[in-house]
Simulated assay, not measured.
Amino acid sequence: MQSLADIASDYAALLAKGEALAAAEKYWASDIIAFEPAKSEAGDPAIAMGKPAAIARLTRWLETNAMSELLIDGPFVTGDQFALFIDMEIVRRATGERQPFSEIATYTVREGQIVEERFFYG
């Protein structure tokens, strides 16, 4: 089994390459719980329970947004968790509007899979 540091580094590398769906498919547990600060603009709930719901939410977000100038600081590993500081520019696919965006993402790992993800942003 991979170490937490190896999982965190690989996950961050996949995100940095723009492969968020691949990272999710590879590392999210079937019973993952994903927390956003609020309901999404598309009406997705703040909490997605289970891999199918979390993947669906991520897919909808990626269908309407592109990530540009993606910078990831971390991972920062402690206990059974890691955190990433993520800075990017979001490009709205429908309008081309560009918006700077920063967030902190935390992940809890058990038995080599991410079982919880939380995002913090303003």
Rank of each mutant, 00 (worst) to 15 (best):
S68W: 13
R93W: 00
P100D: 12
T78A: 15
Q81R: 13
E69A: 10
A53C: 02
E41D: 13
A48F: 01
G96L: 12
A8R: 08
A66D: 12
Y121E: 12
E103C: 09
I86F: 05
A5Q: 14
E36F: 06
P52F: 11
R92G: 05
Y121F: 15
P100M: 12
V91K: 09
Y11E: 07
E117M: 11
A34S: 13
P45R: 02
Q113H: 15
D87F: 00
A24M: 10
L21Y: 07
E116W: 06
A20Q: 11
I114A: 13
E117S: 12
T64M: 04
K26M: 07
S30D: 15
A22G: 08
L62T: 08
G79I: 11
P37T: 13
R98F: 10
S3N: 01
G50K: 00
A24N: 09
N65H: 15
A23W: 04
G18K: 05
E41A: 13
D10H: 14
E111A: 15
A105H: 09
K51H: 05
A12Y: 02
L70I: 01
W61F: 15
A42L: 14
M49I: 10
D80C: 09
A16S: 15
D10P: 01
A23K: 01
L71W: 07
E36R: 11
S40I: 01
A38T: 14
A83C: 10
F120T: 00
Q2H: 01
G50S: 10
G43P: 02
I55F: 06
S30E: 14
D80M: 07
P75R: 11
E103N: 06
A24I: 08
G43M: 04
P45D: 12
V77N: 10
N65S: 11
L15Q: 02
G43H: 06
K17D: 15
R57L: 03
G43Y: 11
I86H: 03
N65L: 06
S9N: 10
M88P: 00
I47C: 04
A12C: 03
S30M: 08
T78N: 13
V77Q: 09
T78C: 14
R98V: 14
S68C: 11
R110G: 03
K17G: 11
R118T: 04
Q2K: 09
T59S: 13
A13G: 08
W28N: 13
Y121I: 08
A23E: 01
M88L: 04
I33T: 14
M67H: 11
F120D: 03
A12M: 01
I47R: 12
I90A: 05
G96M: 14
S9W: 00
K51N: 03
G43K: 06
K51S: 00
S40K: 04
M67N: 12
I114D: 05
Q81N: 11
W61Y: 15
